[in-house]
Design a protein around this nucleic acid. Structure first.
Lengths: 149, 149
DNA sequence: TGTCTTATTGCAAAAATTGGCAGGAATTTG
DNA sequence: CAAATTCCTGCCAATTTTTGCAATAAGACA
């Protein structure tokens, strides 16, 4: 655990940014979320550790972490943005438009597509955390499913 | 032109929503954007036609249009969301992290990946307008490029 | 370790987005 | 074509997110 934290500190530092307690608290709070967490959840967790941290700091810090690649963010379309600590194994998500269920998919499937983009367009894609929308296996069998985005 | 508008009206109506002048103005304003436009640009254009249209109406209407598939939205990561009238040919975008340039790519490249997701996960993807981030051909040759997200 | 430089923070104010509500408008029926 | 029924809209308030700024603290260097 602690060596992970040190690695994160190094990344922040190496990128020319300062390692502040606020930033570490926020990073911890995102980690504690396990999978996806919302900004509000992160804020609640951070405030338990330090009452004085301001919302604006949280916004600025999350933005920074996403830029640095420490945290991945995904707009789920509900207006809610999810944050998640970047994993060693990049992955992506499928989200069903009908039932709202989410599942992870391996990066490998994407990788082939990325490779092809590189060949055809000479563009090196490094997007890490996509959310693809569609209809899940279960809902494909249900005809009268109500559309609940 | 006019027959397109009628088609849009039909879609709105068929989906059980009312065809109001405000909605048509907003649809026009998105069309006039040609490619991508921001919410602010749409608002400015709409207000030229009708001074009384409220911002909340614009927010609600754009959200509706995206749900209906008339308009596609893309979060560019800058915090800015782009809106674009849905085209007959779905397409996606590559955005360079360094120089910020954007280019369109064909849907075909994606389609193969979508097919594979269907095979492996039985999930039918219908995402229409992805923005993939990475490094463009030009910037790959520039070593000392400054990171400007 | 102490000083210096400058990024970062918390605060406050502004700007953007969302939500509730009553009046008005679009459809549907007859 | 008129009346009835909801949906939409504009207004207003609440909430969320961003921004400007002075004080503070992190990191570099001696």
């Amino acid at each position: 655990m602690s060596h992970h934290k040190i690695a994160y500190e190094d990344i922040i530092h190496a990128a020319g940014h300062r390692v502040t307690p606020q930033r570490l608290f926020i990073l911890d709070a995102v980690c504690e979320g396990g999978g996806h967490t919302t900004l509000g959840e992160v804020y609640a967790r951070v405030r338990q550790v330090d009452q004085s941290i301001d919302r604006s700091t949280l916004y600025r810090t999350l933005k920074l972490f996403v830029e640095l690649g420490l945290v991945v963010s995904a707009d789920t379309g509900n207006g809610e943005t999810y944050y998640e600590i970047a994993k060693a194994h990049p992955h992506h998500h499928l989200k069903c438009r009908r039932c709202g269920k989410e599942q992870e998919i391996e990066h490998a499937v994407m990788q082939r597509m990325f490779d092809q983009v590189l060949q055809e367009y000479h563009f090196k894609v490094d997007t890490d955390h996509l959310v693809l929308f569609g209809v899940c296996a279960d809902c494909q069998h249900v005809q009268d499913a109500k559309y609940t985005p």
